[in-house]
Design a protein around this nucleic acid. Structure first.
Length: 803
DNA sequence: TGTGAGTTGATTTTT
DNA sequence: TCAACTCACA
């Protein structure tokens, strides 16, 4: 009988799906339908009668886990298969057995920031001199050791390594401090689970039997700790299915060991190996470029990628004068394609090696009013105010959490200064007490002023009072924290517009908590909430459905695909990154990184570099990446651009409509269409935004008077920011020349909820307003993707878009 | 104790 | 370029 489940699969895919018993290695090239195979395999297992709780699927990112969950649900709606990241899985497990590894029942997960604080304090306590070693370096070294399962007492530095010597001293103290705080860092989550499994054969057996079918995604990225965990759970029931591609291993710097996948067949001699080599994503040309590049790597399993897709156009390789021209040209191209109706914003992605490279792109895209989303930036849970509130929760959850206590003992200000906190910490360390317990004895602490002691006592009382409601709904706990600590009042009474924004963020946290409560009913959910907050990351915020251009690092791009991909700054020192150039293995990883980036493209691909690039404030001449020499030149179309591309699209009616929809306008009349066609794309976009403002003003998108800004004929053409700035100075209005001058509005007329127009950022809404007259400040959220900004109204080029 | 200005120093990728 | 940290002052 035919399996309806496998009807749509090619032979190797089917083979992988139908293989259920015994180890399985799926070598999946890019775009080969890997997720499809994994999800169908889960569905198949379930159809075979395997209970859902016996299946465990492990990924590296929440994004991947969510995607898998979504797609399994499409096949088998009610299955409750456990799909999560390694770290989350370990956190869950660890919570049951925390005491066996020396942690308190409610342990805290310290993030990178917290970890650095602990490290810094440890270094200080030990009196270690850090003149030539940054804490980050130390952090990386300790993380490396942990990823390689080297405990503090077995750490031996390489001969002559200055960092190593310091690590040898600091690592044990650091680890002791974590345990004292009943806290773990990210690496510990894995490490503690490894010790659980190695030290308790019984527990290992139980879990092995429980998770009978284990799948690991992106197996090439596993480090020794992850490898050990997976192996330990696959001894009695070795139904371990791993998928991966050695050519896409890009996390070596985080301890990922390529050997795990290269030697899987040695680890499990009876393994079935399936190769997925047919690519369903890219054009022949893109695939050939990728293939040729990666063939220069030595440490790999050779594979032959092929596709039935079209030949496609040549891959563009463009050399720009400088980074500004690069960014503007890319933005112009995108604007042209969108304007002509050929593409939507969501079809495009721009990749770069380091986050710092995104700046020019952002402003260029804003200039063209192209909506974009950037995957990184200050992530919600990293914001100061969110971390503050969460610190209160952490302290309630784990009274030993020292980082949390020091963070908020004087926030809002209670008159407990730095020196008092140090005294408190010393007292606690001396007596082996937690900071909170030490604080309870504030009156006994030498060197603490009476005033400080009273303040500390009051702080303890507040915490104790809050602790009473600790087991209730999270939203209630947060609300109590905000009220009883005075945190909300502190923000509310502030004149600073930043604080108004913070207040809004804090309210958002309340909403998040409410949603969490709905999904997680029952008492004592605080720890679970905090765990979730600690283990989310930037890419999780990326929205597939938004019609926006995507900006991200090449690392974040893994697992995604886009019709058109731009890869910028393919230059020595950036693409093989500075720090990777000497080391052959690291260089291969950089090559894989470019391979990953290239293979994200479905139809069009452009690689670019600049002759001159501004970096760290100063400008320098760039050398083309050595990887460019390795590409097949017959597949490339090479051009050089010394000025910003002037792409003047003839906007088709269809394209205009799309643009209009993007900008929120219902329809356009013929006159407007004609005028817009006469403008450079950047101006056309700005003009569009103006129309939105007009439309909002009248409340009626249709049936408008033609915009007065266009009656007087096209404004001077300006494309570069320099020219724009010049024009601004000349007119003295500070507004884009395409926008008609308006009478100035008194600052106090800028009210919360109003729509405003900004020459650079476009249309936005006032989220918060404070102060009066010349001190009037507003926080504005922009639709363009610029995010939120605050302005002193009187000095800002903001104009009301309504009234 | 708290704030502000000035200086310094560092910048890959992330669970 | 920018953020974090230091130091001086109120």
């Amino acid at each position: 009988m035919d399996h309806p489940l496998t009807a749509s699969l090619n032979p190797p895919q089917r083979e992988a799906v139908l293989h259920t018993e015994g180890p399985l290695l799926i070598l999946a090239g890019p775009g080969s339908g890997k997720t499809r195979v994994v999800t169908h395999r889960i569905a198949h297992l379930l159809a075979q009668g395997v209970p859902d709780y016996q299946i465990l699927a492990l990924t590296f990112t929440n994004k991947a886990a969510d995607e898998m969950r979504r797609r399994v649900a499409e096949l088998v709606p009610d299955a409750k298969v456990w799909m999560s990241t390694f770290h989350r899985f370990c956190a869950r497990l660890l919570r049951q057995y925390a005491t066996s590894v020396g942690l308190g029942e409610n342990f805290t997960i310290y993030d990178t920031d917290d970890t650095r604080k602990v490290l810094r304090e440890t270094v200080e306590e030990l009196g270690v001199d850090l003149t030539h070693v940054t804490p980050e370096r130390l952090q990386a070294a300790i993380s490396w050791a942990k990823n390689h399962l080297i405990p503090p007492d077995r750490y031996e530095p390489q001969a002559g390594s200055a960092v190593g010597m310091i690590v040898k001293r600091v690592y044990p103290a650091y680890q002791a401090r974590l345990l004292a705080d009943s806290a773990v860092d990210f690496d510990d989550l894995l490490l503690h689970v490894v010790s659980l499994l190695t030290e308790s054969p019984e527990l290992r057996r139980t879990l092995d039997a429980r998770y009978r079918y284990i799948m690991v995604d992106e197996y090439q990225d596993t480090n020794l700790a992850q490898y050990t965990i997976v192996r330990a759970l696959s001894v009695d029931h070795p139904n371990l299915a791993v998928t991966g591609d050695p050519d896409q291993s890009i996390y070596g710097w985080r301890g990922a060991n390529l050997n795990n996948i290269l030697e899987f067949e040695k680890d499990f001699p009876k393994v079935q190996v399936v190769r997925l080599e047919q690519n369903y994503r890219s054009t022949q040309r893109i695939l050939r470029v990728a293939d040729q590049l990666i063939s220069h790597n030595r440490r790999r399993k050779p594979k032959s990628l092929f596709t039935d897709n079209q030949e496609g156009s040549q891959v563009r390789l463009v050399k720009y004068l400088n980074n500004r021209v690069e960014a503007e040209s890319i933005a112009a191209r995108i604007a042209a394609d969108v304007g002509a109706g050929r593409r939507r914003p969501r079809d495009f992605a721009i990749f770069y090696r380091t986050n710092a490279l995104s700046r020019n792109l952002e402003s260029a895209l804003r200039e063209y009013a192209i909506p974009y989303q950037m995957v990184n930036g200050l992530e919600f849970y990293q914001r100061k105010e969110i971390k503050d509130v969460l610190a209160y929760l952490h302290l309630l959850n784990n009274p030993r959490d020292r980082v949390a206590l020091t963070r908020i003992i004087n926030v809002p200000a209670r008159g407990i200064g730095k020196s008092s906190v140090i005294r408190l910490a010393q007292y606690a360390t001396h007596r082996g007490k937690s900071m909170l317990d030490a604080a309870r004895e504030a009156g006994l602490i030498e060197g603490l002023t009476k005033r400080a002691a009273v303040a500390v006592a009051r702080f303890v009382a507040t915490i104790d009072h809050l602790a009473v409601a600790r087991s209730g709904p999270v939203e209630t706990i947060i609300a109590a924290v905000l009220d009883e600590t005075g945190y909300r009042a502190m923000l509310k009474e502030s004149d600073d517009a930043d604080d108004q924004e913070r207040l809004a963020n804090v309210e958002e946290l309340l909403t998040a908590a409410r949603e969490f409560d709905e999904h997680n009913p029952g008492p004592d959910q605080l720890e679970s909430f905090l765990e979730q907050a600690c283990l989310v990351n930037d890419t999780d915020a990326w929205e597939v459905d938004d019609d926006r251009v995507t900006l991200m690092t090449m690392h974040a791009a893994k697992g995604l695909e886009f019709p058109v991909v731009f890869i910028i700054a393919v230059e020595e020192g950036l693409l093989p990154h500075e720090r990777s150039r000497e080391d052959a293995a690291a260089l291969e990883e950089e090559r894989r990184l470019l391979f990953v980036a290239i293979t994200r493209a479905r139809e069009e691909l452009q690689l670019s570099l600049a002759r001159q690039r501004e970096f760290r404030g100063s400008s320098r001449y760039a050398v083309p990446s050595q990887f460019l020499m390795e590409l097949p030149h017959e597949e490339l179309e090479m051009t050089e651009r010394l000025y910003a591309e002037q792409v003047r699209p003839q906007l088709s009616p269809e394209g205009m409509e799309r643009l209009a929809a993007m900008q929120g306008i219902a329809d356009l009349d013929a006159v407007e269409l004609e005028i817009l066609n006469g403008l450079a794309p950047g101006e056309a976009m700005a003009a569009m935004q103006q129309m939105v403002a007009e439309a909002t003003e009248t409340g009626l998108a249709a049936n408008r008077e033609p915009n007065p800004a266009f009656r007087e004929g096209p404004p001077p053409r300006l494309t570069t920011a320099a020219a724009l700035a010049e024009a601004e100075t000349a007119t003295g209005t500070g507004t884009h020349p395409a926008i008609a001058a308006r009478p100035t509005t008194p600052p106090d007329d800028f009210l919360q909820g109003m729509l405003v127009q900004h020459p650079e950022y476009g249309l936005g809404k006032i989220l918060a307003a404070s102060g009066t007259g010349s001190k009037r400040t507003v926080t504005v959220a922009f639709v363009s993707g610029a995010g939120q900004k605050k302005f002193l109204v009187i000095h800002s080029p903001l104009m009301l878009a309504r009234g």
